[in-house]
């Protein structure tokens, strides 16, 4: 088990593709139960960094531990303890909401009974009873997004990675989605989230801002705003990222 106070620790993590350094010696930790915002423009290296943490990509150098396990040597152990939700809330469109949950529950080794009781409770909590038997392809996008989050966390992972979870969703739905994230952290889950929307950065306990493969700023939103003498995270981001060389 992971007894340290950190869910994720990363030191000098680097990923090169040929001559191109996608992620350049990043170092940070994420405390347990924290909502950690991972900001950066497109191409700044967010997704590459996240893939290394999920065990999908092997770092060129540096090291990291997720849920107490080494990201290079113990990737399989990490996979059991994390949840992952990607940009387009990918679920199987031709399966119903319930079938999707059952599939992902089974994949993460839950028993039929566990899946049944958990999905029953989740559908009730989310007020989604009416959506249960509908194919995901026919469900409105806001619900789909919640469902994707539920599917990613049905096995109660220690850490959930959210890759642009609110892309293309209206502000009201986004706010509701964040309520869901808060609820998950109240249960002790750690949330690692990348986002484009800088208003969402305000919801995070701490945020890091990546520019050209490096982490240029890392603190709580309030501290960052103070340091850069800015009113919003948007301004902070613009000041930190103004020297970015990589194109959007």
């Amino acid at each position: 088990m992971n007894n340290s106070e950190y869910a994720i620790t990363v030191k000098d993590l680097t990923k090169k593709f040929g001559d191109f350094t996608a992620v350049d010696r990043i170092t940070f930790d994420v405390r347990k139960g924290e909502i950690f915002g991972f900001l950066g423009a497109n191409g700044a290296g967010k997704t590459t960094a996240m893939r290394m943490l999920c065990g999908l990509s092997v770092p060129t150098s540096g090291n990291g531990r997720v849920a107490g396990f080494d990201i290079v040597r113990q990737a399989e152990m990490i996979k059991r303890r994390i949840g992952y939700m990607s940009q387009n809330f990918s679920l199987y469109q031709n399966l119903t909401a319930e079938e999707n949950l059952r599939l992902f529950g089974t994949i993460y080794g839950l028993s039929d009974r566990e899946i049944k009781t958990r999905s029953q409770r989740l559908f009730q909590d989310l007020d989604m009873e009416s959506m249960r038997g509908k194919r995901v392809g026919d469900i409105p996008v806001g619900w789909k997004q919640k469902l994707a989050f539920v599917a990613a966390t049905i096995h109660l992972p220690e850490i959930v990675f959210l890759d642009e979870p609110t892309g293309g969703v209206d502000p009201v739905t986004r706010r509701k989605f964040w309520e869901l994230i808060y609820k998950a952290t109240a249960d002790g889950m750690t949330v690692f989230v990348t986002t484009h929307y800088l208003d969402e950065a305000e919801y995070c306990n701490r945020v890091s801002i990546m520019v050209d493969g490096r982490i240029e700023a890392l603190d709580s939103p309030d501290n960052l705003k103070k340091r850069y003498d800015a009113d919003t995270m948007d301004e902070v981001f613009r000041m930190v990222a103004k020297n970015a060389k990589r194109a959007e």
Partner: peptide, 13 residues
């Protein structure tokens, strides 16, 4: 394309 393969890959399967 839809990204579901990613979900399978990050899982312990």
């Amino acid at each position: 394309e839809t990204g579901t393969l990613n979900l399978l890959i990050v899982s312990p399967i």
